[in-house]
């Protein structure tokens, strides 16, 4: 270890300027969002509400109601009355698979992708420390969670406003609230959905530190997602289900009750925090102690 390296490492430790940490985060966010793959993922997510909106519009052009009898994704019967419900329908439709898959791809790629393309060691040469680099990677993934959710919500809101009337919102408890409050609730729902993705983001980051192949990390993360979803379906396995990260995903709908039913929402926040803590620290343990050869 050269003298210069030691000094810079010491300097980095002694005066970690907050702005500097921010610039690391900014460069990570830039890396994530400049990729064509990320833009394509966001494009697919934005297309889902368009698809759902047009399908509902075509089905109900003759005056019928969509999803009559309670079939189809949640909230779909309300879409024709109020375009805002397209936001909820689209989030309910993308949350089981599209959204977490996109997050799994980004999270899985975050460390392993750099390792496989050989750029990871150059990142480590910078006197930032591995912990801070990992934090920056994780924050960038979380930023993607928010961006992905907001993409779906914004696209759905736009499509809903174009194709369907907007107006007072009927909550699922049968209470009608103003459009403004409806929008606020939609924002809260988007927040809850983005929070729901924290668990898989942490899981993906951990998997990403295990391997040097980006593809393997992505596939493993998405595979874990599917496995968890399947296990969540079997009533016989109800004992483990409350600890699976997708278990409370649909709880965002509880924000649309009057009064709001907090139990599952809080359970979801706790569970996602637990996943973030366990797999975040596991990723840290792995990443800070591993040999980076590429």
């Amino acid at each position: 270890m050269s003298q210069a390296e030691l000094t810079t490492a010491a300097a980095g430790r002694a005066a970690p300027s907050p702005l500097w940490a921010l610039s690391l985060f900014r460069s990570e966010v830039g890396t994530v969002f400049r990729r064509w793959r990320t833009i394509a993922l966001l494009g697919v997510l934005a297309a889902v509400p368009v698809l759902v909106g047009i399908a509902v519009k075509m089905e109900t052009d003759d005056g019928g109601a969509a999803g009559h009898g309670g079939g189809g994704p949640a909230f779909i019967s309300q879409v024709t009355n109020n375009g805002l419900f397209l936001v909820f329908t689209s989030l309910a439709a993308t949350l089981p698979f599209f959204l977490p898959m996109a997050v799994g791809v980004v999270a899985g790629d975050s460390v392993a992708g750099e390792a496989s393309s050989g750029t990871l060691r150059y990142l480590l040469v910078a006197p930032a420390g591995r912990t801070r680099l990992l934090l920056a990677k994780f924050s960038a993934t979380l930023a993607f969670c928010c961006a992905a959710t907001l993409t779906v919500a914004a696209s759905a809101l736009a499509v809903g406003a174009i194709l369907f009337p907007l107006g007072d919102v009927t909550l699922i408890s049968g209470v009608t609230v103003s459009f403004g409050e409806g929008l606020l609730r939609a924002l809260a729902v988007a927040g809850a959905v983005a929070l729901s993705l924290v668990g898989i983001a942490a899981l993906g980051l951990f998997v990403s530190t295990l391997t040097n192949s980006g593809i393997a990390a992505m596939a493993t993360t998405v595979g874990l997602l599917i496995t968890a979803q399947i296990v969540d379906q079997f009533p016989q396995l109800h004992a483990v289900q409350p600890y699976l990260f997708p278990h409370y995903w649909l709880s965002f709908a509880d924000l649309l009750r009057a009064p709001v039913y907090w139990d599952q929402l809080l359970d979801n926040v706790g569970l996602q925090a637990l996943y973030a803590a366990v797999f975040g620290s596991a990723a840290w343990a792995r990443f800070t102690s591993k040999d980076v050869t590429a």
């Binding site: 270890m1 390296e5 006197p127 420390g129 591995r130 040999d291």
Partner: peptide, 15 residues
């Protein structure tokens, strides 16, 4: 090829 190993204490935790 040089192996890059974690710098001791550079992350302020294990150092």
């Amino acid at each position: 090829m040089a192996r890059i190993e974690p710098t001791h204490g550079s992350d302020g935790t294990a150092g």
